[in-house]
């Protein structure tokens, strides 16, 4: 059971920031599907929750030229079902549809997931793999500068993710090996091709959270087919290791996942 806390439903960005500032130890909450379980286990004890999802700037999904812009408070289910997303970046819609279960997908939000930067979460791989821009209440941050290690981001205290702008690629694919228990990513690879440029982002595996696999990007830029990855390997030294997968197995899965993502563009491929 959680410790006591106060609750505030913010209507505007300023309202949210003020409510956050005025408490000793406030936390923003969107879908609550990462934060509330932590609070129930008494591992987090904010004295005030500031609820963000009613703030208009955080809503909406729209195509804006060569970009797809998604509000931070859009749910996984909303993204998965959006014709705009399905048309622009089908792998992103499929990724959203593969998160957790229907309950999780109807509460959890893109902003919450990205701000949380769980090393096994799905969205960070798409944000980094597509080279998205994170818009916040204060500024714009490049994906390459945003993720800063497990559960750590470039966000400052009190800064709110408002929306994320994804460049629309020529093609993108996502391949995921799921943890047999939690079904979070055990290793998953998001591969996006923009003309001659390729970006590969891997989640679930790295001990610093989501990361880009540069050797694979170079090899695929030269030749965009699974065979281009032959002989390439991720260094197990930088991998997480636990009862579900050793560092060596994770490193192996990074390669397998990247190859399958290349082979199956526009789709989600479940390795297990």
């Amino acid at each position: 059971m959680m410790y006591d806390f106060a609750y505030h439903r913010a209507r505007t960005l300023d309202d949210a920031r003020a409510a956050f500032r005025d408490a000793d130890d406030a936390a923003y909450v969107s879908g609550g599907h990462s934060l509330l379980p932590t609070m129930k286990n008494r591992l987090a004890a904010p004295d005030r929750l500031v609820h963000l999802t009613a703030i208009p700037e955080l809503r909406g999904i729209a195509r804006d030229g060569d970009r797809l812009v998604i509000g931070a408070a859009e749910t996984h289910a909303g993204v998965a079902a959006s014709p705009v997303v399905q048309e622009a970046i089908p792998a992103l819609a499929a990724l959203a549809g593969s998160i957790g279960d229907p309950q999780v997908r109807h509460r959890g939000t893109m902003g919450g997931s990205v701000a949380n930067n769980d090393p096994a979460a799905d969205y960070p791989s798409a944000v980094l793999g597509l080279g998205a821009t994170i818009h916040t209440s204060e500024r714009e941050i490049d994906a390459d500068d945003f993720f800063a290690g497990m559960f750590t981001t470039a966000l400052d205290e009190g800064e709110i993710v408002t929306r994320i702008a994804f460049p629309v690629p020529d093609s993108a694919g996502y391949a995921k090996m799921r943890n047999p228990a939690s079904r979070y990513a055990l290793a998953a690879s998001f591969v996006a091709r923009f003309g001659g440029d390729v970006r590969v982002a891997i989640t679930g595996a790295g001990s610093d959270g989501v990361f880009r696999w540069h050797e694979a990007e170079e090899a695929l830029a030269a030749r965009f087919e699974p065979g281009a990855l032959d002989g390439l390997a991720v260094d197990p030294d930088g991998m997480m290791s636990d009862m579900h997968a050793s560092a060596a197995f994770r490193a192996h899965l990074c390669a397998v996942g990247t190859a399958r993502a290349v082979a199956n563009p526009g789709r989600l491929t479940l390795l297990a």
Partner: peptide, 8 residues
């Protein structure tokens, strides 16, 4: 017999 065990 998890994937990890199998891989090992």
């Amino acid at each position: 017999v998890t994937p990890e065990r199998l891989w090992q």
